[in-house]
Design a protein around this nucleic acid. Structure first.
Ligand SMILES: [Mn+2]
Ligand SMILES: [Mn+2]
Ligand SMILES: [Zn+2]
Ligand SMILES: [Zn+2]
Lengths: 143, 143
DNA sequence: TTAGCAGACGACAATGATTGTCGATAAACT
DNA sequence: AGTTTATCGACAATCATTGTCGTCTGCTAA
């Protein structure tokens, strides 16, 4: 993900205003690999900016998504995850117990549908979800 | 998916009662490839049974899921889809405009993560979502 | 520098999907 | 037929997300 300065620039180019709230979110997302929910981002933002509203966080991540600077992904964990890693095509490993998400770099270029399977459709992209249980959760389940 | 008669039998074995509402749902799901939402199933059920409640449909699909007779899948379309095809491992092609879902039979047995990518995790299964636009929606977008 | 405005802010209410509650009812077993 | 007990369906509650709206504030042009 781009730096706070680069995103500030891009927002201005688009005619969007740059506010302290937005910059706080830019900073939280830069180089974050945790795939946070919007709610989680909001909690983190509040630790340095107690009055920022959840609505503002939603608005900003949607603006970032419209500009292609983040992806909002649905992994079946109940709420959307914010993924700032848009530079490298990748997939996800999801813990079905705690919801933690990790990037996997599996190359699925050859995962293309045979023509007969995609007739009637124009396929735009492929998403692979590996589901399992992380070691922490596996250990915790021995109780 | 099993027949209405087989499911009736399986429900009784489990100590679950078989009601006309449940049998109506069994009938709707048998050999249905449309991946309906619970709401859609409810609408269809109401055409022959006007008083059936949405709650009852949720309850029944959850019972079916617990018995392994259907899968409830999250495809990022806003609501859960009911998939009665549990006999054959398969994946999905999703129209991002209208939400229609189609089965694809791509064999991804060889889509295994290299050890370094799955350290710290026990991977249980893999789900592949092909996203695109169906021909109907593509045609409609020329307006 | 300042004025003016488009756009963002945050409080709050609304939505849509799903789940919980509970008295009335009906299936299954005797 | 009577008893037990799970299901039914009306209604309210919950959770994630979005809409409304009056106030406030970056940004820009004078
Ligand atoms: Mn990612
Ligand atoms: Mn399917
Ligand atoms: Zn975990
Ligand atoms: Zn479509």
């Amino acid at each position: 993900m781009k730096t706070v300065e680069d995103l500030t620039e891009r927002f201005r180019e688009r005619g969007l205003r740059v506010t302290p709230q937005r910059q706080a979110i830019f900073g939280l997302l830069h180089a974050d690999a945790s795939h946070p929910t919007v709610e989680t981002l909001h909690e983190r933002a509040r630790s340095s900016m107690p009055t920022i509203s959840l609505k503002t966080v939603y608005q900003t991540v949607h603006d970032l998504e419209a500009m292609g600077e983040v992806e909002l992904i649905h992994l079946g964990t109940g709420s959307v995850r914010v993924d700032p890693n848009v530079e490298h095509a990748h997939h996800h490993l999801i813990c079905t117990v705690c919801g933690n998400v990790r990037d996997v770099l599996v190359d699925v270029r050859d995962l293309r549908l045979p023509a007969r399977d995609r007739r009637g459709f124009t396929v735009a992209d492929v998403e692979v979800h590996f589901r399992g249980v992380c070691d922490d959760c596996a250990a915790r389940q021995l109780s």
